[in-house]
């Protein structure tokens, strides 16, 4: 049996909000360590890897491994019915037909209970080996989101160029071009405002702006985003959860 209680529904709300526009169907794999998901978007360009460790829950137990096949749009409809500050408990039997979601108001005696039908989802599992990266950028997630939104107004592609202590986001469009350069910066009082660049080799990669604009829907999850890049390899965008992560592996664009 699975029983996982979040102190606040807001965490799962944000996670589902970040994923629902990229993937329609997901298997949520529940083990004693927590809940994990691996899913690929419909255009087979973006891979999402979610891990909500048991530590992200107030209480968590899962006696046997359970797979919950969930339709994200339906899950989102139910999740939206709960308040962000409600306690949220996920309950499923060992061979479940449904996932139960229980929202409890902390101040009042109000309990809302929903049941979501499960689906059989046939999904390939990709093995992600430990990847080597040439550059790692830690930066404020809101800053990264703004850059992705701004650059998308110019072009469908966003070029990321990293040299020494700066990252250049470059966009070449039909009617014009634009770029934003950010440099390493340490804010001792507000560490979440800092930018850290670790570079082994210079980077020049191009990504689809559409996918980056899907990834930045994770911004409310964490104040910082970690971007890991390697030549001719997928980029890794990581948002930390209280215990766990939401990661996006995005395949680059190449010159044809």
């Amino acid at each position: 049996m699975l029983e996982g209680k979040f102190d606040e529904a807001s965490l799962l709300k944000k996670v589902i909000d970040a994923m629902k526009d990229s993937v329609k169907l997901c298997n949520f794999n529940c083990t004693e360590n927590g809940i994990s998901v691996q899913a690929i978007d419909d255009s087979r360009v973006l891979l999402i890897s979610l891990l909500i460790e048991a530590g992200s829950f107030e209480d968590y137990r899962c006696d046997r491994n359970i797979v919950l096949g969930l339709e994200m749009e339906s899950l989102n409809k139910i999740i939206k019915n709960g308040n962000a500050s409600d306690m949220l408990t996920l309950v499923a039997e060992d061979s479940p037909d449904a996932l139960n979601l229980i929202f409890e108001d902390k101040r009042r005696d109000r309990i809302a209970e929903y049941s979501l039908k499960l689906m059989d989802i046939d999904q390939d599992f990709l093995k992600i080996e430990d990847m080597k990266f040439d550059a790692v950028v830690n930066m404020p997630s809101a800053e990264f989101a703004k850059i992705c939104r701004d650059m998308k107004t110019l072009s469908e592609s966003l070029q990321i160029i990293i040299t020494k202590d700066s990252v250049k986001f470059n966009s070449e469009g039909d009617f014009g071009s634009g770029s934003v350069v950010i440099k390493s910066f340490t804010d001792l009082e507000k560490t979440e405002e800092s930018v850290r660049i670790t570079l082994e080799k210079p980077i020049n990669l191009t990504f689809g702006a559409k996918y980056l604009n899907d990834i930045i829907k994770s911004t409310p999850l964490a104040s910082q985003v970690t971007i890991k890049l390697c030549d001719k390899q997928p980029a890794l965008f990581e948002y930390q959860l209280p215990s766990g992560y939401l990661r996006f592996y995005l395949a680059p664009k190449f010159e044809d």
Partner: peptide, 14 residues
């Protein structure tokens, strides 16, 4: 012209 790569070609099916 730029071409978008697929993600699956970078990882192993397991």
């Amino acid at each position: 012209k730029e071409k978008q790569a697929g993600i699956e070609s970078f990882f192993f099916s397991g």
